[in-house]
Nucleic acid binder design. Sequence first.
RNA 1: GCGCCAUUAGCUCAAUUGGCAGAGCAGCUGACUCUUAAUCAGUUGGUUGAAGGUUCAAGUCCUUCAUGGCGCACCA
Length: 510
Amino acid sequence: MSEELSDLLKVRREKLQNIRDKGVNPYPYKFTATAHSNQVLENFNQLAEGQESAETVAIAGRIMTKRGHGKASFATIQDEFGRIQIYAKLDVIGESQYELWQNLDMGDYIGVTGHVFRTKTNEITVRVEKLEILSKSLLPLPEKWHGLQDKEIRYRERYLDLMVNPEVKEVFVKRSKIVSFIRRFLEEKGFLEVETPVLHVLQGGAAARPFETFHDALSMPLFMRIAPELYLKRLLVGGFEKVFEMGRVFRNEGMSFKHNPEYTMIEIYQAYVDYHDIMQLTEDLIVHAAKEVLGTVELEFRGEKINLTPPWKKITLEDALKENGIDIIGKTDDQIRTLGKEKGIEGAKELGIGKIINELYDKFVEPNLRQPTFIIDHPLETSPLAKKHRSKAGKVERFELIMAGMELANAFSELNDPIDQMQRFQKQADLKAAGDEEAESMDEDFLRALEYGMPPAGGLGIGIDRLVMLLTNSPSIRDVIFFPHMRPLAKTQPKPEEMDTLKKDQNESK
RNA sequence: GCGCCAUUAGCUCAAUUGGCAGAGCAGCUGACUCUUAAUCAGUUGGUUGAAGGUUCAAGUCCUUCAUGGCGCACCA
């Protein structure tokens, strides 16, 4: 394979040498452009055919197509904002520069300076009067018409995907705008963006299996965070009233179109409000984000129409179950256990009653929720950080936001009764002892913080990647993450020597 | 983790019942000073994902493995 490839590679390397032989540096240090492709197209749109701009422009970009005509040539160059045609003519640039031109390939970066004109076929074009190579490309680009289709290469070599598939860039530009909008929206409401540890000593803030790592100097295991929740609540204890953190969390679980091992979550905490207020905030934030970035609240996702027009449906988890043919209202624990078994919930005998209800919900309700819906008032047992419901026994004040069958957000009236919290942790500890890998750790320092007193508060977590999926009609989470996790290819794995060196370091520190 | 499908030239794809592994783009050579999937003429390029097996003969059938996609399971 490398034998054959070397044919294509050899030619490019020969051209590189040709350029050097002419005394030209194929990798120079800078180029000062006066405009981007889109600006040139706009600014000179009024030029008539054959007419030429009074001033010259300087633009830089990557050569994407090249059409030679002997002593003249057309090419298209691409910059961050689009493509523009350029025209190089022997008469104009002279023999030496035209020789350089002939050593250029698709993929090379160049800078060109010249007047702008409109061709006979009506295209705004930059006449090359001065040509500079800015970077020689040594690898061939994918096919110019079909582009790059292979999903594996698109994910592994995202840089290539971005080069040749313009719609990919659009998705990530939108992602950036959504993230930026969320920050602005919250800051305007007086929220403060904060940062808390990513390396955790304890597992907490959510039900998930963590990644484990090791601190050599302290000689202790650490966990990559599964949620920032417990640190953000400590900030409420410290006196901040409105905080948020947007950042990466890590969960050691399966991968799918809606799961990546590391993903971006925003958590928002506000003192003196309850989960009803947070529901309103969630709705406002997402509706405004859609309007800002898409200009509409009517989405299409995976071929399905999703309408974000408020107000969104609110329904208790029990009522939602009932709507889907599973009536647990007024039933005893034993009756629910039997129902779970009938409905094919595995281990319905041993599982806690809350867990069974959750599984029934996951299986029979969530997939059917297509339009934005707040599912509220979950069982206490599976919500160890949420405050008990003010009027419903055995429930907490919690909501999950579901769209297109996907959980997008999770929130509660935050539990601030330290004694209740301690008892909930104790129950989690029992579950952990019984083998539940997702159960939370007893966090003594967090309990001490609560004992000093945390104001009543509402808290919210939103999965940013999933929100971006919905707002950009991206069918997979991998389409909204630049470099989604992939199994490494053999040649990209760490070398054995490297691993040996790392292990040696670890042993010496012990 | 389980099931189904895919893997052929740098890229996009063909190859009939198991019977000589092909095309377009890209590349190279030549022609061409307003083309735009430029055009025209010629031309290079293959361990068919890897390893075994069946067969006179394997891209094609069988086994194992690798990577990916899509479902399911688990989760957010």
